[in-house]
Protein backbone atom coordinates (compact mmCIF):
# COMPACT_ATOMS: atom_id res chain seq x y z
CA UNK A 1 0.00 0.00 0.00
CA UNK A 2 1.48 3.32 -1.00
CA UNK A 3 1.02 6.21 1.32
CA UNK A 4 0.01 9.46 -0.27
CA UNK A 5 -0.40 12.59 1.79
CA UNK A 6 -3.11 13.93 -0.53
CA UNK A 7 -4.83 10.70 -1.39
CA UNK A 8 -6.09 7.89 0.78
CA UNK A 9 -3.78 8.61 3.68
CA UNK A 10 -4.82 12.26 3.98
CA UNK A 11 -6.68 11.87 7.26
CA UNK A 12 -3.64 10.26 8.85
CA UNK A 13 -1.33 12.98 7.60
CA UNK A 14 -3.75 15.60 8.90
CA UNK A 15 -3.64 13.95 12.30
CA UNK A 16 0.17 13.92 12.23
CA UNK A 17 0.20 17.53 11.04
CA UNK A 18 -1.87 18.57 14.05
CA UNK A 19 0.60 16.88 16.38
CA UNK A 20 3.56 18.50 14.62
CA UNK A 21 1.93 21.94 15.05
CA UNK A 22 1.60 21.22 18.75
CA UNK A 23 5.20 20.08 19.10
CA UNK A 24 6.99 22.27 16.59
CA UNK A 25 8.50 24.73 19.06
CA UNK A 26 9.42 22.15 21.70
CA UNK A 27 13.10 21.28 21.86
CA UNK A 28 13.67 17.62 21.04
CA UNK A 29 10.35 17.32 19.23
CA UNK A 30 11.69 14.87 16.67
CA UNK A 31 11.41 11.67 18.73
CA UNK A 32 7.86 12.21 20.03
CA UNK A 33 6.72 13.24 16.56
CA UNK A 34 8.23 10.08 15.09
CA UNK A 35 6.61 7.98 17.79
CA UNK A 36 3.27 9.60 17.02
CA UNK A 37 3.81 9.00 13.32
CA UNK A 38 4.48 5.34 13.95
CA UNK A 39 1.41 5.14 16.15
CA UNK A 40 -0.72 6.62 13.36
CA UNK A 41 0.74 4.77 10.38
CA UNK A 42 2.05 1.64 12.11
CA UNK A 43 5.45 2.17 10.54
CA UNK A 44 7.61 4.93 9.08
CA UNK A 45 7.75 4.80 5.30
CA UNK A 46 9.79 7.35 3.35
CA UNK A 47 6.81 9.58 2.64
CA UNK A 48 6.00 9.82 6.35
CA UNK A 49 9.63 10.54 7.26
CA UNK A 50 9.71 13.30 4.63
CA UNK A 51 6.53 14.75 6.06
CA UNK A 52 8.07 14.78 9.55
CA UNK A 53 11.28 16.37 8.24
CA UNK A 54 9.43 19.12 6.39
CA UNK A 55 7.10 19.72 9.30
CA UNK A 56 9.90 20.15 11.82
CA UNK A 57 12.36 21.86 9.47
CA UNK A 58 15.02 19.16 9.79
CA UNK A 59 16.59 17.10 7.03
CA UNK A 60 15.33 13.72 5.93
CA UNK A 61 18.80 12.46 6.72
CA UNK A 62 18.34 13.36 10.38
CA UNK A 63 14.93 11.70 10.61
CA UNK A 64 16.19 8.60 8.83
CA UNK A 65 19.23 8.45 11.12
CA UNK A 66 16.97 8.39 14.18
CA UNK A 67 14.55 5.93 12.56
CA UNK A 68 17.35 3.45 11.84
CA UNK A 69 19.12 3.95 15.17
CA UNK A 70 16.28 2.93 17.48
CA UNK A 71 14.94 -0.58 17.08
CA UNK A 72 11.57 0.70 18.26
CA UNK A 73 11.04 2.42 14.91
CA UNK A 74 10.12 0.24 11.96
CA UNK A 75 10.45 1.16 8.33
CA UNK A 76 8.34 -1.61 6.89
CA UNK A 77 4.65 -2.15 7.19
CA UNK A 78 3.85 -4.39 10.17
CA UNK A 79 1.36 -7.19 10.44
CA UNK A 80 -1.97 -6.79 12.17
CA UNK A 81 -0.43 -8.51 15.20
CA UNK A 82 3.18 -7.85 16.08
CA UNK A 83 4.75 -10.68 18.02
CA UNK A 84 7.86 -9.95 20.05
CA UNK A 85 9.72 -12.87 21.60
CA UNK A 86 12.06 -11.81 24.37
CA UNK A 87 15.69 -12.72 23.80
CA UNK A 88 16.87 -11.15 27.03
CA UNK A 89 19.22 -13.22 29.21
CA UNK A 90 16.62 -14.78 31.52
CA UNK A 91 14.22 -15.69 28.69
CA UNK A 92 17.03 -17.00 26.56
CA UNK A 93 18.26 -19.25 29.35
CA UNK A 94 14.70 -20.47 29.85
CA UNK A 95 14.48 -21.47 26.18
CA UNK A 96 13.00 -18.55 24.28
CA UNK A 97 14.90 -19.58 21.13
CA UNK A 98 12.68 -22.67 20.92
CA UNK A 99 9.61 -20.44 21.31
CA UNK A 100 10.81 -18.24 18.49
CA UNK A 101 11.61 -21.23 16.27
CA UNK A 102 8.19 -22.74 16.91
CA UNK A 103 6.50 -19.44 16.01
CA UNK A 104 8.52 -19.17 12.82
CA UNK A 105 7.50 -22.70 11.88
CA UNK A 106 3.88 -22.28 12.85
CA UNK A 107 3.49 -18.97 10.98
CA UNK A 108 5.85 -19.93 8.15
CA UNK A 109 7.64 -16.59 8.43
CA UNK A 110 11.24 -15.51 9.01
CA UNK A 111 12.13 -13.58 12.13
CA UNK A 112 11.80 -9.85 11.41
CA UNK A 113 9.28 -10.44 8.61
CA UNK A 114 5.53 -10.28 8.13
CA UNK A 115 3.30 -13.15 6.97
CA UNK A 116 2.03 -12.80 3.37
CA UNK A 117 -1.55 -12.38 4.61
CA UNK A 118 -0.42 -9.38 6.67
CA UNK A 119 -1.66 -10.96 9.90
CA UNK A 120 1.55 -11.42 11.88
CA UNK A 121 4.98 -9.83 12.16
CA UNK A 122 7.48 -11.92 14.09
CA UNK A 123 10.28 -10.12 15.97
CA UNK A 124 12.98 -11.10 18.40
CA UNK A 125 13.22 -8.37 21.01
CA UNK A 126 15.54 -7.34 23.79
CA UNK A 127 14.49 -7.71 27.42
CA UNK A 128 10.80 -6.99 27.90
CA UNK A 129 11.31 -6.37 31.59
CA UNK A 130 9.29 -9.22 33.10
CA UNK A 131 12.05 -11.76 33.64
CA UNK A 132 10.06 -13.47 36.39
CA UNK A 133 7.71 -14.77 33.70
CA UNK A 134 10.50 -16.07 31.46
CA UNK A 135 10.30 -17.12 28.71
CA UNK A 136 8.04 -14.30 27.58
CA UNK A 137 6.49 -13.01 24.41
CA UNK A 138 4.14 -10.19 23.56
CA UNK A 139 1.46 -10.10 20.93
CA UNK A 140 0.41 -6.52 20.52
CA UNK A 141 0.11 -5.26 24.10
CA UNK A 142 -0.67 -8.65 25.59
CA UNK A 143 2.02 -10.52 27.54
CA UNK A 144 2.36 -14.31 27.53
CA UNK A 145 4.71 -15.85 30.13
CA UNK A 146 6.17 -19.18 31.26
CA UNK A 147 5.77 -20.45 27.73
CA UNK A 148 6.57 -23.81 26.29
CA UNK A 149 6.74 -24.41 22.53
CA UNK A 150 3.57 -26.47 22.73
CA UNK A 151 1.63 -23.45 24.00
CA UNK A 152 2.27 -21.67 20.72
CA UNK A 153 -0.34 -23.17 18.35
CA UNK A 154 -3.15 -22.49 20.80
CA UNK A 155 -2.13 -18.88 21.43
CA UNK A 156 -1.62 -18.14 17.75
CA UNK A 157 -5.01 -19.64 16.88
CA UNK A 158 -6.72 -16.98 19.01
CA UNK A 159 -5.26 -14.26 16.78
CA UNK A 160 -5.78 -15.84 13.38
Amino acid sequence: MSIDRNGKGKAKFDQLQAFIEEMRLEPGALMPVMQKAQEIFGYLPEEVQRFVAEGLGVTLSEVYGVATFYSQFVLEEQGEHVIGVCMGTACYVKGSQAILDRLAGELKVEVGKTTPDGKFTLNATRCLGCCGLAPVMMIGDEVFGRLTPDDIPGIVAKFR
Binding site: E46, Q49, T59, L60, S61, E62, V63, Y64, G65, T68, F69, Y70
Partner: peptide, 19 residues
Protein backbone atom coordinates in the same frame (compact mmCIF):
# COMPACT_ATOMS: atom_id res chain seq x y z
CA UNK B 1 22.73 20.83 2.98
CA UNK B 2 22.34 17.73 5.15
CA UNK B 3 22.21 14.92 2.60
CA UNK B 4 24.41 12.50 4.51
CA UNK B 5 23.94 11.24 8.02
CA UNK B 6 24.61 8.34 10.33
CA UNK B 7 22.40 5.38 9.52
CA UNK B 8 21.79 2.29 11.68
CA UNK B 9 23.67 1.69 14.92
CA UNK B 10 26.68 -0.02 16.41
CA UNK B 11 28.91 -1.95 14.04
CA UNK B 12 26.36 -1.49 11.26
CA UNK B 13 26.54 2.29 11.42
CA UNK B 14 27.27 3.88 8.06
CA UNK B 15 27.40 7.47 6.90
CA UNK B 16 25.25 7.76 3.80
CA UNK B 17 22.21 9.45 2.29
CA UNK B 18 18.82 8.30 3.61
CA UNK B 19 17.04 5.22 2.23
Amino acid sequence: VGVIGRVNRGFNTIVEPPF
